[in-house]
């Protein structure tokens, strides 16, 4: 087990290096000059050249990459062009906001989808099964930004139960998820984020569970005299490798794809930060954000692989 974990960990290093190269290259390829968006149109060319040299933008690309990588490894993601603040702290603060609501969303979706998917798989063709199918189709087809807006209209505007946007008085730094006055700001973003993964995971749970329930060993379990609950326990444990893989994928999707939801709710996460960085062509900020997101994605996959090998003994020894 530990050998497998170590090997898997070492294997992530080249992946992470690849991630840094792509992050760096993506921004190089993108059109637009960060300096022109920083200065007034009538700035003299020599002043622009000086700025260029100051930010290292006049160096060869490979050199720029290595310089950048060296600084990144030291935890220095550079300085934001837009507001001169260190990128690292800004990205990490935003990332914390994003990862927490993404985790809550995906875990909520995971638990609910297991319950709904299991009921649907056991009572195939029943009322719950049809409702679950309807819910799943709804969840997959509805765009999250539309859902987010509808949630705001219903719960913030009409019912006035929940705040519409932002993180409230505490703000990013002292936000406490265990205090209702803070947490109520997170509820609608969490729900809006959770619906698509919930729908997809419910479908997957139902499909993989009904496949498992048709396998030979289920008949063995029945022939052993086990009751329905025990048999379902066996079956659920057997879909866990697939469910965990799905959980990881959805979490990755949530941290990367939360731009729209975070924009609607003005939730100060990486999605909103990306939005801001792109609009202001803030290259260090953009690179830093993408890098953190990509790195998080790689780490999530690592954790998923390790978790899978814990639940499925066939994985680690092969």
């Amino acid at each position: 087990m530990w050998m497998y974990a170590l090997r898997r960990l070492v294997l992530t290093i080249p992946i992470l290096l690849g991630v840094t190269i792509i992050c760096f290259a993506l921004v190089q390829i993108a059109p637009g000059d960060p300096i022109t968006s920083l200065v007034r149109p009538d700035t003299p060319p020599e002043q622009i050249a000086a700025l260029r040299a100051y930010y290292g933008l006049d160096q060869p690309v490979v050199f720029q990459y290595l310089m950048w990588l060296w600084r990144v490894l030291g935890g220095n993601f550079g300085t934001s062009i837009a507001n001169n603040a260190p990128v690292a702290s800004e990205v990490m603060r935003a990332f914390a906001n994003t990862i927490v609501i993404a985790l809550i969303s995906v875990l909520f979706a995971f638990v609910v989808s297991l319950v709904l998917g299991t009921i649907a798989a056991i009572r195939q063709g029943g009322i719950v099964d049809r409702l679950v199918t309807a819910l799943a189709v709804f969840g997959i087809s509805v765009p999250t930004f539309w859902l987010a807006v509808v949630l705001v209209i219903i719960f913030a505007v009409n019912l006035n139960w929940l705040p519409a946007t932002g993180m409230g008085a505490s703000g990013s730094d002292s936000f406490n998820y265990f205090v209702w006055d803070d947490f109520k700001f997170a509820i609608m973003p969490i729900v809006a984020l959770a619906l698509p993964p919930l729908a997809i995971m419910t479908r997957i749970t139902r499909a993989s569970l009904s496949e498992i329930l048709n396998q030979d060993f289920i008949q063995t379990l029945r022939a052993k005299g086990l009751g329905g609950f025990q048999i379902i326990t066996h079956a659920i444990r057997n879909i866990m490798p697939a469910a965990i893989a799905m959980l990881g994928l959805q979490l990755g999707y949530l941290i990367g794809g939360s731009v729209l939801v975070e924009t609607v709710f003005t939730w100060p996460g990486t999605g909103a930060l990306l939005n801001k960085a792109i609009l202001t062509r803030d290259i260090p900020l953009l690179q830093g954000t993408i890098l953190v997101l990509a790195g998080a994605f790689v780490l999530i996959n690592l954790v998923v692989d390790l978790a899978q090998s814990l639940v499925d003994p066939r994985i680690k020894r092969s």
Binding site: D216, F217, Q219, T220, R237, N238, V311
Partner: peptide, 11 residues
Amino acid sequence: FQEPMTALDPL
């Protein structure tokens, strides 16, 4: 059962 490969729970 006939198939000992599939008649036991793999996990």
